[in-house]
Amino acid sequence: MRVFRGYSRPVPAPVALAIGNFDGVHLGHAALIARLVAVAGSSGVVPTVLSFEPHPREFFAPASAPARLSTFREKLELLAESGVAQAMICPFNRAFAALSAEQFIEAVLVRGLQVRHLVIGDDFRFGRGRLGDFALLQAAGERHGFTVEAMGSVVVDGERVSSSGVRRALADGDMAHAAKLLGRPYMMDGQVGHGQKLGRQLGFATANLRIKHNPLPMTGVFAVEVAGLGDKPLPGVANLGVRPTVGGTRPLLEVHLFDFDRDIYGAHISVRFVHKLRDEQRFPNFDALKAQIAADAAAARAFFKR
């Protein structure tokens, strides 16, 4: 996937475009992208997404912004896997937020992206004061030579699929429901780094991933599957949180893989959270922590044998 930072230099060829934050790339996003790729293929233009960094809610109200479901890299990887060929990432800053809807159309869509077809969600609003809507885009399309279509919401078991719905499922520890809305298990990617080697002292060596999600969308102990180390995902147990028993303060994902003994420092892996075992908690001493880790590993093994 080609990635363009900002819109000051136009992309090299006309595009079919989808606009959104695409946090988590859930089933609603997947439907939008599938339509985008189909239209681009039939019209001979490049399937492209326009997204923003940071999320507009992080810019306007950083203290109350929701937890991100996916990091910037994870989002781009998921979009590329869905067939998107290029992405334009616009820095969401004071100047960008001040663009009127008409200025956004002229500067970003027409000059920056040479848009020929635009696919948006049914709740899409844009421009200063969120005054831009589907009708305004249609009128602009007639003037500038692009077409516009709005996609309806995707509904699963009576629930509209949304990033906020995925966040609620994760916060509730309902991994199965989150997976139903995402179309796959919730996952986090990262590079395996060196930790304090406490896992080895406790009898459970771990692969440690520094997590860039801040705040975390969830914490706790989970049965997980890890991709990126072989032909098929490997089962294990993981703790996601700050590790209060050992005085941790930064989010860390610690993964213990069952029946696995390879040096994987530096490997980039994907951790899929398939079942929550319990909340993260503080233990009075290392012996209590070690006993609980053993119980967690046994519970995760039992889950995978069901």
Rank of each mutant, 00 (worst) to 15 (best):
K75I: 11
G83S: 08
A31Y: 01
A87F: 01
V110I: 11
G24S: 08
R57E: 13
Q86R: 14
V45M: 05
A80F: 00
G44W: 05
S8D: 15
S42C: 08
A97R: 05
I33S: 08
T71P: 07
V108T: 06
Q86E: 12
I89A: 09
A38K: 11
S51C: 11
H26T: 09
P54K: 10
I33V: 15
L69Q: 06
G112Q: 03
T71R: 03
A87Q: 03
P54G: 09
N93D: 15
R57C: 02
T48N: 00
P10R: 04
F52W: 07
A61K: 09
N93G: 15
L109R: 02
R68E: 11
A97F: 05
G41K: 09
D23R: 06
L109E: 05
L32H: 01
S43L: 10
N21W: 04
A61Q: 13
P14S: 07
S64W: 02
R57F: 00
Q103V: 01
E53Y: 04
V15Y: 05
S8W: 07
I19H: 01
V37S: 10
A38W: 01
R68G: 14
R35L: 03
P62R: 12
V37I: 13
M88P: 06
A40C: 09
A61G: 08
F22C: 13
F72M: 09
E74I: 11
R35S: 09
L36S: 02
E53K: 00
V46N: 03
P91D: 12
E81Y: 00
V45P: 08
E77M: 11
L79N: 14
N93A: 09
G24K: 09
M88T: 15
P91E: 07
V45R: 09
V15F: 06
E102H: 06
M88W: 02
G83I: 04
F104P: 00
S64P: 07
I89W: 09
L109D: 01
A107Q: 13
F22S: 13
I89Q: 12
P56V: 08
V25P: 07
A85G: 10
L99G: 01
G20P: 13
F92Q: 14
L27A: 10
Q86I: 07
A80V: 02
R111I: 00
A101I: 07
S43M: 12
Q86N: 05
A101K: 02
F52E: 11
E102C: 03
E102D: 14
S64A: 14
F52K: 08
R94Y: 07
R57T: 15
E74P: 07
S64F: 04
V110H: 03
P12Y: 06
A30F: 00
S64D: 15
R9N: 14
G83L: 09
A67E: 11
I33D: 10
R57Q: 14
R111Y: 00
T71K: 04
P14C: 01
A13W: 04
L32Y: 03
V84Y: 05
R9A: 14
S51K: 02
E77P: 00
L109V: 00
A98K: 06
S43N: 05
L69T: 12
H55W: 01
N21I: 15
S70C: 10
L32D: 04
V45Q: 02
N93V: 11
E53A: 12
G44E: 12
